[in-house]
């Protein structure tokens, strides 16, 4: 029973996505037109994705890097807890 229900839900999501993919590209917003027309003149980089990520929305990317750095520090503090404690015992 569970399997049949999950299969039907998956088929429904698949149909929704297949019908929605065509309609995504038809809408054109002002921001999209501005980026595609002015990216080479304003930023000078030929790759539009890179121009958006590192130039038009660079503060957004800065936030992403900060989140990644915070995750790194958390992983380091949790995984190397024992070695840090041993160092403290040796030094102090």
């Amino acid at each position: 029973m569970k399997k049949t229900i999950s299969v039907f839900v998956a088929i429904g999501f698949f149909l929704i996505i297949v019908t929605a993919v065509g309609s995504f590209s038809e809408k054109k917003t002002d921001v999209q037109e501005y980026y595609t027309k002015n990216s080479i003149e304003k930023t000078g980089s030929a790759n539009i994705v890179n121009a958006i990520v590192w130039d038009f929305r660079s503060y957004d990317t800065l936030g992403e890097e900060t989140v990644l750095f915070t995750a790194i520090i958390a992983v380091f503090l949790i995984a190397h807890k024992k070695s840090i404690a041993e160092k403290k015992e040796v030094s102090g």
Binding site: A46, N50, W54, T61
Partner: peptide
């Protein structure tokens, strides 16, 4: 554009 030294400061950011 389209040379290696293009894109302003993007190359250092990358």
């Amino acid at each position: 554009p389209l040379t290696l030294w293009s894109g302003g400061v993007t190359i250092f950011l990358n």
